[in-house]
Measured scan of single mutants.
Amino acid sequence: KYFGTAKARYDFCARDRSELSLKEGDIIKILNKKGQQGWWRGEIYGRVGWFPANYVEEDYS
């Protein structure tokens, strides 16, 4: 189950295995919004990890 999707506004390079690298334009499935302050958990291309919420724009459609 996921909470919708978000589109990456910027590139983000994961610093460890718990984080999710993003490329601008990627569409991420949002799995959890209750991580550390400002971090969401998501899935993209079969990978799961945490990413900074301010790097994405949530899709409300």
Rank of each mutant, 00 (worst) to 15 (best):
K23E: 04
G46N: 11
G35E: 11
K34T: 11
G35Y: 04
S21N: 07
D16N: 12
P52K: 05
Q36R: 14
A6T: 01
G38R: 05
G38Q: 10
Q36E: 14
G49R: 00
G4M: 11
F3H: 06
N32I: 07
W40Q: 01
C13S: 14
R47V: 07
Y10R: 15
Q36V: 13
A8S: 05
Q37A: 13
W40P: 01
W40G: 03
W39P: 02
V48F: 10
S21A: 09
K33T: 07
V56M: 00
E24L: 02
G46T: 05
Y10I: 12
D16F: 04
A53Q: 09
E19G: 03
L31R: 06
S18A: 15
R41C: 14
D26M: 06
G49M: 01
Q36I: 12
V56K: 04
K23S: 11
E43T: 07
K7C: 13
L31S: 04
K29A: 09
E43P: 07
L20R: 01
Q37F: 10
I44Y: 06
S61Y: 03
N54R: 15
F3V: 13
Q37C: 13
K23L: 04
E57M: 12
Y60D: 15
G35Q: 08
G38C: 03
W40C: 02
K7P: 00
Y55S: 10
F3L: 14
Y55C: 15
K1M: 08
Y55K: 07
D11E: 11
K1W: 06
E58N: 04
Y10E: 11
G38W: 01
G38L: 05
E58P: 10
C13W: 12
D16M: 05
W50F: 03
E58Q: 10
Y45E: 15
G25P: 04
E57D: 10
Y55M: 13
E43K: 11
K33Y: 06
V56H: 03
L22M: 11
F3M: 13
F12K: 00
Y2V: 09
Q37M: 12
G35C: 11
R9A: 08
D59E: 13
E43I: 05
A53F: 06
K23H: 11
R41E: 14
G42D: 07
I28A: 04
E58W: 07
T5I: 09
D26S: 05
